[in-house]
Design a protein around this nucleic acid. Structure first.
Lengths: 239, 239
DNA sequence: CCAATTTGTCTATTTGTGTAGACAACTGAT
DNA sequence: ATCAGTTGTCTACACAAATAGACAAATTGG
């Protein structure tokens, strides 16, 4: 009777199913009664209750004794254009949102083979690694890790810490424009460390963007790996 | 002692952690002994064994009694360019891969408000809904749902079933070129139905692309929602 | 052959999950 | 006031998950 052969509990499945159905608008502003949901998902009423309880903790639902379970209004997801010349801060202000980049950690590292190849350096070359986080309207939306050649940008860490913007920090090194050469996208489960700094559920999903920025002469400026919280952001691409 | 407040079992977590570490190359071609992994993940050896067993079923690992547990070679992920004028079939043949679109289901539906707005029709207008799946080199990589105005493309279903290509099917309706106006990307857990047709684990992650194709006069041709299996594909965008 | 290392199997115990049923508490409508 | 419908709480039980320990079976290197 009890399957659980994939390591995901039934109530978690029901919660995920409900969240998807809610996002799709299938239930309007109010959930059907627990007994009906139990039938719909073929589980016991108590299992449904646990799913609802989890979604209530997330702020998705609001259960009221005697009345029913209601769906909370959610703010629309932030849209983030990729592939264009967009600079993050500029783009956020266009959506009239307050965004801020926060430096979490930084260190000097030696380039491994892959990094060296992408940045057109020799393996072992010195890089600055910048761990940062982006907060939009008080909500953490992404964590990213950037690697810069330390020869060319010796002061990048201090400059970023001061301005909170890669664009500004690069300007201080005399680089006034750059563009994205390539973006590779995939998705995975959030790592425990990222989950903590992003203040999200441990089973959240992140969109992972691996990108290379180059200057106007096509010389690599940085490689950057960004993890966007999938339920807080939509990446938009317009050719 | 045992937390489990998120509905995901410990062995599943360990399995996911191992898969990520393996993908990153942290272990080389061989896993550390089970007792060490148990320490590393702070779980009992039996829990590690269950995780390894799951990954072995997936074909990621290969345990040999008395010798150790080894990491199987995996074929590199298929890359799929977005945003360009790329046609799926053409792009796959460029990677010398055999791709095929397979029609799963089709029906006539009435446009809801959102669909009507995107396709510039009136709510309730008649649409053809095409459920299809893409298989590359025998491996299912994506499921997609497309909506076409049935007035303009009366024969789209038969044409797609025959050719296995949207581009070809549209040509039969006199539309020789079209382009993507917008792509919106997010990620979520695979739905149970998709998990079955894609032959993947029930807790897999999909990249969800919501896109609109338009003809050369900017008239909407189709809206399409594609779910790419995140561990089988990388979306690549080059400006 | 022997010893060390490693995966495989077995038993047992504790904790968590899902099911089942009964009833309390609350709401809104008749 | 009553009643039907709904969420909240409680007890009980079967089964799965996680831990723990012991030992078998296979491999490797000396």
């Amino acid at each position: 009777m009890n399957v659980m052969d994939d390591g995901i509990s039934r109530w978690r499945r029901v919660a995920d199913g409900l969240r998807a159905a809610i996002a799709e608008g299938s239930y309007g502003d109010r959930l059907p009664p627990e007994t009906e949901l139990a039938k719909e998902f073929s589980v016991n009423r108590h299992t449904v209750r646990r799913a609802i309880s989890a979604l209530s903790d997330e702020g998705v639902l609001r259960a009221e004794r005697g009345r029913g379970t209601f769906i909370n209004e959610t703010q629309p997801r932030i849209t983030y254009p990729i592939g264009t010349r967009a600079r993050f801060s500029e783009n956020m202000t266009r959506q009239s949102l307050e965004s801020a980049g926060r430096l979490i950690n930084s260190e000097r590292v030696a380039a491994d083979r892959t990094q060296a190849a992408l940045l057109q350096l020799k393996p072992g070359a010195s890089l600055y690694k910048l761990e940062k986080m982006t907060v939009v309207d008080g909500v953490p939306v992404s964590r990213s890790t950037g690697y810069f050649p330390s020869d060319r940008f010796p002061n990048i860490i201090a400059a970023y810490a001061e301005t909170g913007s890669v664009t500004q920090a690069l300007k201080q090194h005399g680089l006034h424009d750059y563009r994205r050469r390539e973006t590779r996208l995939t998705a995975e489960r959030v790592s425990p460390a990222d989950a903590e700094s992003l203040q999200c559920a441990a089973d959240s999903i992140v969109l992972v963007s691996n990108a290379i920025d180059v200057d106007l002469d096509d010389a690599p400026v940085q490689i950057i790996r960004t993890r966007f919280l999938a339920d807080r952001i939509v990446l938009v691409f317009k050719p």
